[in-house]
């Protein structure tokens, strides 16, 4: 049984934002992360504010000039099956389809997928780690098979989202509403490294709510893919993955975004890999060079050195597939 909390079904985004500005209040969307956190007592809540009565946050709308506006409450199943996303933003459809299980995708929302808490087994377990106000990262001297190889400092979590790297690769923007109004943030600036905060994973301030994710119109000649490697074939988080968006012109890569999942506390953009492929034809030699560039600077912990060759393999394979 979960601990006691009261329940409020918000009648407006403003009402939800006002209620959620209190520290003992949690926002409820799909609930697939929140209820697990409450059950494991990773989080406490005296009140849940449900967004599920807010139809303005649901569904997929056409954006200006051929882009899309994805309501924060859109389920991952809706994202994975949407015709236009499948056709023009494959990386996002593939990422959404790779999340959890059919049940979790029917329930979990896009906004919730971006705002989910870390899956580190120490954070989720009965350990008072730095992210829970303690003074120790237990992964530093403990079991670190699933931890980060980039961007760690004092905390070595990996960001668990699959849709986040896809949306960073698509240069999406996130619309955030709080008590003082609405702001638009590039998703590439939405996530926070441990060096900047040890207690939160996003730039959201108390009371701020993700309401919408905005996709620009697809670039001409765009190709994209998300590749995720897990310990089992389904129903699991990424050991490592890559979201790649390239735009081709006259047989060469004109623009590229390479964003890694499962290897850093935030979706990890590799500008070194991008520089390696921009201006080149997409072939096996370029794929190998980009993969090598992507893992430069990796600093594995005791148990996760396997992620370095894994990332290289994922990038070689995915870039080669995109070349075809």
């Amino acid at each position: 049984m979960l601990s006691q909390f009261s329940y409020q079904r918000a009648a407006s985004i403003k009402e939800a934002a006002e209620a959620a500005s209190r520290p003992d209040v949690r926002i409820l969307a799909g609930g697939t992360d929140l209820l697990g956190c409450l059950r494991n007592q990773v989080l406490q809540a005296n009140r849940l504010v449900s967004l599920n009565g807010l139809s303005a946050l649901k569904g997929i709308r056409q954006g200006p000039g051929g882009g899309l506006r994805l309501g924060a409450l859109t389920t991952l199943t809706e994202i994975a099956e949407h015709r236009q996303i499948l056709d023009s933003y494959s990386v996002l459809a593939q990422a959404a389809a790779s999340v959890g299980s059919p049940q979790l995708r029917n329930q979990g929302t896009l906004g919730g997928n971006l705002c989910q808490r870390p899956r580190c087994w120490y954070f989720r377990g009965d350990f008072k780690c730095r992210r829970k106000g303690g003074d120790t990262c237990f992964a530093e001297g403990g079991d670190s098979q699933l931890h980060c190889i980039f961007g760690g400092a004092s905390c070595y979590m990996v960001h668990p989202s699959d849709t986040a790297p896809a949306l960073v690769a698509l240069d999406a923007k996130v619309s955030i509403t709080g008590r003082r109004g609405t702001r638009l943030v590039p998703l590439s600036s939405f996530f926070v490294l441990p060096a900047d905060s040890l207690v939160k994973e996003t730039v959201l301030q108390p009371g701020e709510i993700v309401t919408e994710i905005l996709l620009d119109p697809p670039q001409p000649g765009a190709r994209s893919a998300y590749r995720k490697v897990r310990e089992r074939g389904a129903f699991d988080f990424a050991l490592a993955g890559a979201a790649i968006v390239v735009a081709m012109a006259e047989g060469k890569v004109r623009t590229a975004r390479v964003v890694l999942s499962g290897v850093a506390p935030v979706p990890w953009r590799s500008t070194d890999a991008e520089k390696t492929i921009i201006g080149k034809p997409l072939d096996a030699a370029v794929a190998v060079a980009a993969a090598a560039a992507a893992v430069k600077g990796a600093s594995p912990l005791a148990d996760n050195g396997y992620k370095v060759p894994l990332v290289r393999g994922i990038l070689e394979e995915t870039l080669t597939a995109l070349a075809a």
Partner: peptide, 25 residues
């Protein structure tokens, strides 16, 4: 905890975990 599937039910025709759904919702 939404990790096994034993509690799967249909909600408006879609399979979901009853353990991760508040009754009030």
């Amino acid at each position: 905890r939404g990790e096994c599937g034993a509690c799967t039910v249909l909600i408006d025709g879609a399979a979901r975990y009853a353990c991760m759904t508040l009754a009030v919702e």
